[in-house]
């Protein structure tokens, strides 16, 4: 168990800077999710913590110690890779035991620890198989098992679920969360899936082009996004952005007005809009409309409510308290 601290962490590949100074304090046992769109530098950040990528500037601390120049093995971390990185020529047992063998642990201890982890992950009956004889979910578990047996003080996950189908992803998400709770190991988890981030994280970092736009608890980030980027990235369907002139009490400097789809409702009076199309998802219905001012918006409605037909003219309303204002830089104001 350990804390992880990043101080003004920066990374450049040649002349292009991809991480622009990130500060983060991860508490002991905390589950931190790093989320952001493709190419924003999530993997690079994680790999700097893992020691697979050099640090250009700033500092990485694990357990209070500076590890910028330590080898991956000296950092007491275990990484789970996106493609699992299992060794095809080794059995499941050997894959899981590899790290312990390298560390020169006694054979009896290796066997015991691998079996313990296999039991935890329901892999006991697969120990003699090779990775290619396993399903995607089982491979995923082996990759986790390989990390668990080493009893590291920090787990690092780089999009570990992105190769699984949607249903399995939900199941494995739950398993990872339970496992982390049970083991209490500090974890950094990279994903581009905001639902994964919301459900797994104790706190999440929303990254945008190499910067941490916001760090906070999922619901806090959802309810109180600090930038327009965060507001648009977290939440599905995304927040509606309208010109701030649509509110007559917008604060000075405000350019954009943001309202979540679930905070918009149909009313007798209010902003006029035309229904473009509707999506009935079962429990809820998404109504996509175009406002007179040219902006478009989505309204999330309980399926029990009336659904306007396509092409109908409707009126939209919302509570003043649900509005968020952003300035021309995309910052909250």
């Amino acid at each position: 168990m350990a804390t992880v601290t990043l101080k003004e962490l920066k990374k450049s590949f040649g002349k292009t800077q991809v991480i622009h100074g990130i500060d983060l304090e991860v508490l002991d046992g905390e589950f931190i999710v790093i989320v952001g769109p493709s190419g924003c530098g999530k993997s690079t950040l994680l790999r700097m913590v893992a020691g697979l990528e050099t640090v250009t500037d700033g500092e990485v601390q694990i357990g209070g110690e500076r590890v910028n120049d330590s080898e991956p093995m000296e950092r007491d971390i275990a990484m789970v890779f996106q493609n699992y990185a299992l060794y095809p020529h080794m059995t499941v047992f050997d894959n899981m035991a590899y790290g312990l063998k390298i560390a020169g642990k006694p054979k009896a201890e290796i066997v015991e620890r691998v079996h313990e982890a296999a039991k935890l992950l329901q892999l006991e009956s697969y120990l003699k198989r090779r990775p290619r004889e396993l399903s995607g979910g089982q491979r995923q578990r082996v990759a986790m098992g390989r990390a668990i047996v080493r009893k590291p003080s920090v787990f690092l996950f780089d999009e570990p679920l992105s190769n699984l189908d949607a249903k399995l992803r939900v199941q494995m998400r739950l398993e990872i969360k339970q496992l982390q709770r049970r083991l209490g190991v500090t974890s950094l988890y990279v994903t581009h899936d905001q639902v994964e981030a919301m459900t797994l994280a104790d706190r999440m970092i929303v990254m945008n082009a190499g910067k941490a736009d916001q760090i906070g608890a999922p619901l806090e980030v959802y309810a109180n996004p600090q930038t327009q980027f965060v507001a648009g990235f977290i939440g599905s369907p995304p927040m509606n952005f309208l010109p701030s002139e649509m509110a007559n009490d917008a604060p000075g400097g405000a350019k954009t007005l943001g309202i979540r789809p679930e905070h918009m409702r149909f009313a007798r009076t209010g902003k006029e809009a035309t229904v473009i199309y509707t999506e009935a998802l079962g429990a809820e219905t998404l109504v996509h409309v175009e406002l007179k001012q040219g902006a478009s918006a989505t309204i999330r409605q309980n399926a029990a409510g009336p659904v306007p037909s396509e092409g109908a003219v409707v009126h939209l309303d919302w509570d003043a308290g649900d509005r968020l204002f952003f300035d021309s830089q995309g910052r909250r104001c």
Partner: peptide, 17 residues
């Protein structure tokens, strides 16, 4: 895959192993 080599380093293996 590069990640197989990286996983090796992550698991504490030396370049030779």
């Amino acid at each position: 895959d590069d990640s197989l080599i990286e996983a090796g380093y992550d698991l504490g293996a030396s370049g030779f192993s």
